[in-house]
Design a protein around this nucleic acid. Sequence first.
DNA 1: TATGAATGAGGTTTCATTCAT
DNA 2: CATGAATGAAACCTCATTCAT
Lengths: 214, 214, 214, 214
Amino acid sequence: MTASIRTARRRPEDRPDEILSAAMEVFSEKGFAAARVEDIARRAGLSKGAVYLYFDSKVAMLKALVEQSAGRIANAASTLSLMGADDDPEQAYRAILKMALTALSDPEISAAPRLVLSEAGRFPELAQFYRKRVIEVGRTAMGHLIRTGRRNGRFRDVADEAAVLAFIGPVVAQMMLSTVFRLDDDPELDPGDLADAIADIVLNGLKPRSVNDA
Amino acid sequence: MTASIRTARRRPEDRPDEILSAAMEVFSEKGFAAARVEDIARRAGLSKGAVYLYFDSKVAMLKALVEQSAGRIANAASTLSLMGADDDPEQAYRAILKMALTALSDPEISAAPRLVLSEAGRFPELAQFYRKRVIEVGRTAMGHLIRTGRRNGRFRDVADEAAVLAFIGPVVAQMMLSTVFRLDDDPELDPGDLADAIADIVLNGLKPRSVNDA
Amino acid sequence: MTASIRTARRRPEDRPDEILSAAMEVFSEKGFAAARVEDIARRAGLSKGAVYLYFDSKVAMLKALVEQSAGRIANAASTLSLMGADDDPEQAYRAILKMALTALSDPEISAAPRLVLSEAGRFPELAQFYRKRVIEVGRTAMGHLIRTGRRNGRFRDVADEAAVLAFIGPVVAQMMLSTVFRLDDDPELDPGDLADAIADIVLNGLKPRSVNDA
Amino acid sequence: MTASIRTARRRPEDRPDEILSAAMEVFSEKGFAAARVEDIARRAGLSKGAVYLYFDSKVAMLKALVEQSAGRIANAASTLSLMGADDDPEQAYRAILKMALTALSDPEISAAPRLVLSEAGRFPELAQFYRKRVIEVGRTAMGHLIRTGRRNGRFRDVADEAAVLAFIGPVVAQMMLSTVFRLDDDPELDPGDLADAIADIVLNGLKPRSVNDA
DNA sequence: TATGAATGAGGTTTCATTCAT
DNA sequence: CATGAATGAAACCTCATTCAT
């Protein structure tokens, strides 16, 4: 994970990505403010000075990182959410849930979102950017799924806002439990099983009921 | 919010709380590392030096703050969750949800949890502490609720892990949307309505169904 | 030694001396610059503020201390050195040596000279003062002793400078070994025996020799 | 003394020594606690930050300095003391005395021992280190000299402790007079003459006497 | 392109000194 | 007289950034 290959072996065009990768590691370990450019450089197998050949400043690295991550996540999410959504929104949700739980349990992948969360206070533009480029994409996709299901007669008529939170919330909560707040003796849950169990509850909650109260 | 009354007028025994309050503000605005003790002091209406009469270091303020908040939240949560849980778990969940959404929409209250989230990377002990003192209390309470409902015949037999995530997740997600990732043109949702809508979905998801599979 | 009696019990006129005594302790433990007025105050059984009722500043304490000590030592030395010097300079030297070795082995007494030594760099006036008020008194007394002995025919005709160094030097060296540079497993020497042994060498070195050169 | 040549012109590998040299100056002028790293840096022709590229802390400089000095002095002393000691201990003592008086009259050379003396209170390890690495070497050498002389029949049978103090003491005393406690109108003594005069007394004091009292 | 020495602003922490009570 | 809260000027140390090589 950590770059350790000799500089000479590597291609110069890879440098920026290597630096960003190292930066991601250090940022999520220490937080942005406490991260030292020197550490990023060392982890990328470069000298401190060299880093400044590729990025103007530490903030520039943060921004590049977030943009990169936002792009990736947004693409993945939008692709997935549309895939088969119209035919079978329930099946689509299950698939998305499984993918998301798997991905976000990987600290390497959850690192970027967590970083944004951490630094949102100091860089509100970052939070706004992430909201628009990642969160909104996800929410829109979920909204689409839900409306499709409703049209199909698979889902009841519930408030969009609430449905989206019910869809997304469990993933967010699980991401935090399994990364930031993980304890050493936490049991290792299978993302597939967990996804099924969550989907079972949430989808059931959206199903129309013949004779129901509430 | 910001103390501005002359020092002499105020009671010395209030100083620690005044400082913590100021520290909370500055920490959540800038993050712990970027927060300057000078700013905390000024916002508490004191000089930099005076702060050190009450706290040994900046880290000491962070710890005190987290402990304070943990105590408060844990108490509130455990009180609420037991209140009437045995008689009517559904009603209890609705009440908890409403309370949580209201509380966490208030940036003053959500500040501490968000701070922990931000600094967890640099202070893993803090994350552990919060997990044990706050999160586990909440999870335990939710688990209790769910098992009670199951015994009552109000809830289906579902995996505890998943049920807890379904219960808690939407609140976590909403907290983030309404604080960290808030956009200026976000509609102001009524916490009561939102709680009802979410409860409607989640509780319905747990209900036994006459003729039905997943 | 350290003041621990209740303030109420003590007489106000003793305050300055109690403070100086505490200051002496702290100064020799930490050095002047690193000594904290707070520590001095506590050790004198007072609050920090009260110390400033008796002394204008930390430097004022240092000066008072050195003057006090200089007065004491100079008096003792000059008294002793004149006592019986004319009748029997050898006996006088033995007596002085014994007294000096005894006194300077006591860390409480050697503290002041060592303090002057330590702070001489930063307070040259102190060094000058001590030189004139203490060292010169001692050197003069020793010079008197030597000249008397020479007139008596008990001592050879040697350079005054060298003789004084030979007289005083061993005491200075022993003081350092037994205070600053003491090791835990250093043997405890009897000042009387040591004084006799040193006097034996030094006085013998000054005696006229019948047929002999160096 | 003070480096003033532009940084770029100088060789980086000299930096540590240049810094130590500057530190020695500042420490002996102000004492360790009152010495400012900024002053050391400026005197070494560097910025504050650069100093920290070479030494971890101010204390690290002090330690390096003392070790450096200890090494030098111990080497010099042990070399000298063994040189010709067996053949003619009296001549050896005269040579050592002359060397020591010359060296220690030079403030640059006596600076380190005086520094140790000053800071011994605050850094007892330093005092211990110096005692073992410098003082003991000197005392051992002197002891060797004395025992050799005794075997040769050149010296009387006297207590080792006392003889060593008689040998070393005058040098210590003279060092202090000529550095710490120097007055502007002190006469400039020739170290060679002084050494001869002191040696004359001390060695005479150790010589066996045909008909003597005490 | 890459290095690593150097800078200097900025942050935390300490502490002599003051002053209202 | 005495207290202890408060101040504010340093001082140590860190690190983003620059630059000569």
